[in-house]
Write a protein that binds this DNA or RNA. Sequence first.
RNA 1: GGAGAGGUGGCAGAGUGGUCGAAUGCGGCGGUCUCGAAAACCGUUGACCCGGGCAACUGGGUCCGGGGGUUCGAAUCCCCCCCUCUCCGCCA
Length: 423
Amino acid sequence: MIPIQTLRENPDYVIERLKVKNFEAKEIVQSILSHDEERRKTQKMLDEKLATSNQMAREIGILFKQGRSDEAQELKMRTAQLKEETRELSEKLASEEKNLEELIVRLPNLPAEIVKPGKSSAENEVVLQEGTLPSLESTALPHWELAQKFNLISFELGAKVTGAGFPFYVGKGAKLQRALISFFLDEAIAAGFLEFEPPLLVNEDSAFATGQLPDKEGQMYHVAIDNLYLIPTAEVPVTNLYRNMVLKHNELPIKLCAYSACFRREAGSYGKDVRGLNRLHQFDKVEIVEIAHPDQSFRVLDEMTSHVASLLRKLELPFRMVRLCGGDMSFTSAITYDFEVYSAAQQKWLEVSSVSNFTDYQANRLKLRFKDEEGKTRLVHTLNGSALALPRIVAALLENNQTPEGIRMPKALVPYTGFDLIS
RNA sequence: GGAGAGGUGGCAGAGUGGUCGAAUGCGGCGGUCUCGAAAACCGUUGACCCGGGCAACUGGGUCCGGGGGUUCGAAUCCCCCCCUCUCCGCCA
């Protein structure tokens, strides 16, 4: 949620910036401002009435204590009218607050200054590209065929036992999963992130606080009997650790990381893009989360992207880093960098990480604040990024490293896998 | 799943109808003392909303797990829900 303060102070700026996300905010913003004004007027009236009632109640108490019950009774009569009025006003106030909130949540986060307008991923800017694209033999196989050939992953058994998008990893395939998870976690810990192993289900409050609800409801698996949601990313439980808190400025930044399985219903996806590991209902990911001082969040963002880049370098994968244009960014993000690795056999770039600064947007909903150097309470900035999501990394590792002898493992991974070749 | 106990400020914990946003202790912050620190002592210390002020600050309102009710008045009484703890049962 954009803080109401921002909307009051700079409505025109908000409208202008949201155009970068192709969002026409003018009507909503105007509506918000008038509802806001109405709300304040109502509250003022209500507060005055309440002040009078409080005063009268106090007087009645004193009169009773002094044994002047006739006078007290008389005063009691006079509170009836007031009570009815405050009742009406507080109902009005509650409904106006609800209306206001419903409008505000419809506004996406403001894109940062550096973010350019654009409609789709075609307009994203490549800001960094590293590594040489491998040129494979014409006999090169896509990862789903390699997975079958070397018996690493079984999509068929997953489909039999659960459904499409829930693969089994087998033998060295399973070991590779564990190796990557450990490698990513160790790297994150070395970079100063504190490891958490989170619950894989969260309650409704948590899903709201990080913004999965109400609008992305259909993307999450829901356990109806207990009203719990399977997490789509570790960001949800880990960020919610800090819901409703006031931190001290010297506690910032807070750096957290977590491995988790992630569950996504991904309704409506189909075709070649979802073949093999390209898109799954359940996958593994190591997530990094940072809670930062507002003045520092863009520096922190750079640190996070450097961390992700270093992982890809160690895995010896050709990658590029892309700054998303306004139209391709998520609702809650102020700026997002995607990392993509090149899949040689599919001859396309696969997104393996998304690193975002949510500025104060998520913090506002989380009610996550800090006391600054002057003792003022302010919203923090939150950031997160995948470091990294496994499936497409595995796809790229298998495809790019296929040789006549088998699939060779990058050096950094061998201590974790215990093998350097899959044959 | 069964039985019981309980949810109060950063933490611990008192408060069972009126002057209670709430005793007390701890912690935090500021000071005295000290070369410095500890100890001791003194002072101070919640969040949110609306208004006034450039600001320090200040007036009003709300908040004692959440929601509803009784009452002139609720942390305190009643109802519903949620959560935690203890014992029993079941269980990796």
